[in-house]
Design a protein around this nucleic acid. Sequence first.
DNA 1: GTCAAGATTAGT
DNA 2: CTAATCTTGACG
Length: 194
Amino acid sequence: MPFYLRETAQVARDLLGAWLTHGQAGGVVVETEAYLGSEDPASHAFRGPTPRSRVMFGEPGRVYVYFIYGNHHCFNVVAHPPGRAGAVLIRALEPRLGLDLMKARRGPCSLRDLTRGPGRLCQALGIDRALNGVCLAGGDLRCSPLPWGQPAPTGRPCRGPRVGLTRARHEPLRFFLEGNPHVSRGPRAVSEVP
DNA sequence: GTCAAGATTAGT
DNA sequence: CTAATCTTGACG
């Protein structure tokens, strides 16, 4: 069964600990959120396909990038079972590759803040709308299991409510490594996940 | 055409 | 806690 052709929440869970790179910059995924289709009022896909959300209904394994609040980009991986819609928002990385490059893009900030939060992560990796719809395989943008020699990130997989929403706030569709310093916000209403 | 809201962040 | 900043989508 193809990795991205599964329930969006399951993919979000399984993306914890994955290796994400754009060119010579990247790191380990430590925080994700699942956004579903017509059943999820907080999702861009809730009211059916629009010019912006079209890609969420398309081929799993492609990338959904959008611009928000006039300043920031958010990076998602399209993932859903056949005939549905959904994407996984990558909310934070533990930075490992191309630290100098990422620092140069981000400007002065602590190592901890380099890729902490969806907007900062996109800035550090050089991700913007030009990448919307591209395939997450074979290009500059890659996602794979943790390579040999890379230590596993600290923290146990947990789940809780998604961040920054006004609708569907209680759904536990945020996944993160509890206690990992690169996670964007302190855990709330947590349960551990296998 | 108009308008309100937004999957955020940096700064008080 | 609040301002900044501009795109998107809904409505008429």
